[in-house]
Design a protein around this nucleic acid. Structure first.
Lengths: 244, 244
DNA sequence: CGATGATTCAAACGCACGTTTGAACTCGGC
DNA sequence: GCCGAGTTCAAACGTGCGTTTGAATCATCG
């Protein structure tokens, strides 16, 4: 009996008759990705998921234990490899560069390109996940608040290091803000047409081509990160810390 | 009897005994804003709203007809004036400039500053709404898809005009994409600490000071909009203008 | 005061939700 | 040929949802 089982995520010790079991699990995960993308987290029911996956309603609780655990696995199985690839690409770039600092464009590409790879994999339905991920940051649901920070902590730290080295003149606070802005743009761009249609007055050609979007995104972000500093706002009249 | 009434939104013809009635309506609207911000659209129930507003459960359906109409009013009453103010500020800038084209920074400020004004009004609880609005673009709920495009169409058209004039060299497609990126950054920045905390490794000081954020945002966005063009992607081996 | 219309209220409606249950299948190994 | 673990299934559980209802309350005015 499996019944429940907040089994931690790994479950590598699967018997060789995993074909059917794995099939059900996988179908549930894919249906969940699709439906989360279409309707968001809170608005997607287990009944909708199991209907799309053509699986019994109880299968979710049997294989994942709860809806919450299912959600966690949906994000972790994609986000883990994606963020690992980002860090790997940055490591490789820095190794090649020796001691020299990287170009801003290279650093940004190390964030964007791995997402692009995942998004292009038709087998993994990565494009669906990328659009879902863009939405996830705006979801205030508690479940996601547990998952995302843990998945992103290392990536943020690592890229901040690289950017500090590439932009030695930039005050730390300013750089942190600009990284925040950058992730916002990325998140929005990944959410794709859906958010886009909300304000678009005319359809954008090439909206499907993730690679084209990346090559439009990189110069935009690189210029933003390197923008001239704003007039210092700390010096109002007294050296107050930052208060309004 | 009022009972139901998709009364269109205006309802200016309110008798002088509006004190209590208006109080209930207003309390519901404010509670809805707060709860949407905290938990998102789908996860906020009428029971939670009426509990926070300290109002009877049936009051929502009495005053607004349905949850859907309530949501629509929450957005329209704030978004209408906000976007009108944005267009007005842009009109004024262009009138002052005579025939000369505006600076990118001025155009961006005409988008951001009115949001700031709304956000600073403590009476209107504008800050709550601004954060909610940042989230709204990522909500795939059908209700919002009906509301937001209508509210933003004019603003997008108007600012595109101004940006085309300020950046005559920029291809139309490229400019449209960059506007898309810009709205993404804005949306994310407005959502504020909530989205920020998801990836932040350390707390950002000054996160509460919307004006400080604006003055960090404008140079970032202005530089992004004016970034060098990416290598043209139609021609692969052609003499791309800006290659890595 | 008593009539009138607007508003509030407690209670209930039917429905969809996440989860649980226990029986029915599947299938390799004894 | 059946045992038992793994998996699927139909049905039900209790809960909370948006909405409706009809009576109670309130303010206004003839």
């Amino acid at each position: 009996m499996k019944r429940g089982g907040t089994n931690g995520g790994g479950t590598n010790a699967m018997a060789d008759h995993e074909q059917l079991a794995g099939d059900t699990r996988e179908r549930i995960l894919r249906a969940t990705e699709s439906l989360f993308m279409e309707h968001g987290y809170s608005a997607t029911s287990l009944r909708a998921i199991t209907a799309r996956a053509r699986v019994n309603l109880a299968a979710v609780n049997y294989h994942f234990g709860s809806k919450q655990t299912l959600i966690r696995e949906v994000f972790e199985r994609r986000l883990g490899p994606l963020n690992a690839a980002r860090i790997a690409q940055l490591d490789e770039l820095e190794a090649k560069a020796g001691g020299r600092s990287l170009a801003i464009e290279q650093i940004i590409e190390a964030i964007v390109a791995p997402a692009l790879l995942v998004g292009k994999d038709p087998l993994a339905r990565g494009a669906v996940f990328m659009r879902l991920l863009g939405r996830a940051f705006a979801e205030p649901a508690e479940t996601l608040r547990d998952i995302l920070p843990g998945q992103y902590r290392q990536v943020v730290i690592r890229f901040k290091q690289a950017l500090v080295r590439a932009l030695p003149e930039m005050p730390d606070q300013e750089l942190t803000w600009r990284m925040h802005f950058m992730f916002g743009t990325l998140s929005y761009a990944m959410a794709g047409n859906d958010a886009l249609k909300l304000i678009a007055t005319c359809s954008l050609e090439g909206a499907e081509d993730a690679e084209a979007i990346m090559h439009r995104l990189i110069p935009f972000l690189a210029a933003g990160l390197q923008a001239p500093l704003p007039p210092s706002r700390g010096a109002r009249a007294a050296p107050g810390r930052q208060a309004a």
